[in-house]
Design a protein around this nucleic acid. Structure first.
Length: 189
DNA sequence: CCGCGGATCTTCT
DNA sequence: GAAGATCCGCGGA
């Protein structure tokens, strides 16, 4: 699992599709299969938070692969990222959507579709930033899961810069991929 | 179904 | 002081 994250961001973002994110909180486990990710490059990517330099907030991006980077946007929402590539390179992967696993799952469930909703449902906030997926007793970690049959790629969502690059990846067969507005299902393989 | 705008706060300029 | 890796509710068609 670690080896999959210790790759360049675009490869790590594809690797993460199908993996299962497990969140432990309050004696309860929530599991979700990742179906949509975005890669943010460590260098030469004006859309990446690392672009503006190494600051107190962005410090986890420079950590070893599997370091959590959680930030707060638009005064309302949190976004969950995983540092990837090797330590010292600030590439990361944004987790944009997942499918609920276990318990009662309903078709058409959108509670994990979109980075803000996913964090709300999994109770992810800035208290997790700087922590590590693989540290002992981690409240958030990964498990193997069913890989997607086909992977789609498109430009990243919500950015004004670097629209030409197709760094958003998604499971073409999943109904949980975010936003019909964002061209769900669009993009080439 | 689609498009628009408000909410609300952190971070960097 | 402005913009931002978002979401939801509202209005119109």
């Amino acid at each position: 699992m670690l080896a999959g994250l210790a790759q360049a961001p675009a490869e790590a973002a594809r690797f993460l599709l199908g993996k299962v994110l497990v969140r432990i909180r309050g004696g309860r486990a929530r599991a979700a299969r990742i179906v949509e990710t975005e890669a943010y490059l460590g260098a030469g990517d004006p859309a990446a938070h690392a672009w503006s330099g190494r600051t107190k907030r962005t410090e986890p991006l420079w950590g070893p692969p599997g370091t959590l980077y959680v930030y707060f946007v638009y005064g309302r929402h949190h976004c969950l990222n995983l540092a990837v590539d090797r330590a010292g390179r600030p590439g990361c992967v944004l987790i944009r959507a997942a499918e609920p696993l276990g318990g009662r799952t309903r078709s058409g469930d959108r509670t994990l579709s979109g980075p803000g909703r996913l964090c709300r449902a999994l109770r992810v906030d800035r208290r997790l930033t700087g922590r590590h997926l693989f540290e002992p007793g981690s409240a958030l970690f990964l498990r193997e899961g069913g890989p997607p049959r086909a992977i789609g790629a498109s430009p990243r969502v919500g950015l004004r810069v670097a629209r030409r690059r197709r760094l958003r990846f998604f499971d073409r067969d999943s109904a949980a991929v975010s936003g019909s507005r964002y061209g769900r299902g669009r993009g080439r393989q």
